[in-house]
């Protein structure tokens, strides 16, 4: 494919394609990613709709928080079971609210570590569905352009989380 047919202006997601240059040689071309450049809104539509439907099920007591976060992070049952180090059979039980209630705190902590959330987030929803830069399942430095952002930090107490609403000074 010729370079000019691959060029896409999308600075947020750059990739390298190999393409035909004007002199007929082939080489790398750094440009915007085709998929995100063209379909990012569609991606947000799918993940947003999935998130809302899972949240609704969680609020209605139809699924457990483990089921919620597993889906948000796009992990499968075998993948999550292997990461937590339990059988798929046990995991399936923990996906329902009834099975979830029988979990020990120590096992819950193991789940939380693998799902990259604080244990406290198994029992509360911080609804930031409109903020694509923050999600309880993604522990990271917040880079929000909004006036306020949520910061959740672990403390020395492994089960205690400190949640702060911080004014964005930038």
């Amino acid at each position: 494919m010729k370079e000019k047919d691959l060029i896409l202006n999308f600075p947020d997601h750059q990739v390298v394609y190999y393409a035909e240059k004007s002199d007929g040689t082939y080489g790398p071309l750094q440009t915007g990613c085709y998929m995100t450049g063209n379909y990012i809104d569609e991606h947000f539509r799918i993940t947003g709709s999935l998130n809302r439907s899972l949240l609704e099920q969680l609020k209605n007591g139809e699924i457990s928080p483990i089921c919620y976060y597993m889906n948000i992070e796009m992990l499968t049952i075998p993948e999550l079971a292997s990461r937590v180090g339990i059988s798929q059979r046990s995991l399936k039980k923990h996906l329902s609210p009834k099975g979830f209630q029988k979990l020990s705190i120590s096992k819950l902590k193991r789940y939380a570590d693998v799902l990259n959330i604080q244990v406290a987030n198994m029992f509360q929803i911080i609804d930031t569905i409109e903020d694509k830069n923050w999600n309880a399942g993604y522990e990271e430095k917040v880079r929000s352009s909004k006036p306020y952002f949520i910061s959740q930090g672990a403390t020395k107490n492994p089960l205690l989380v400190e949640t702060k609403i911080i004014a964005n000074s930038k």
């Binding site: 947020d12 997601h13 991606h43 992070e73 796009m74 830069n133 999600n135 993604y138 990271e140 430095k141």
Partner: peptide
């Protein structure tokens, strides 16, 4: 997933 220099929406396991 843990490469947090990428935006959140981009990161998968």
């Amino acid at each position: 997933f843990y490469m947090n220099y990428f935006p959140t929406w981009y990161r998968i396991h």
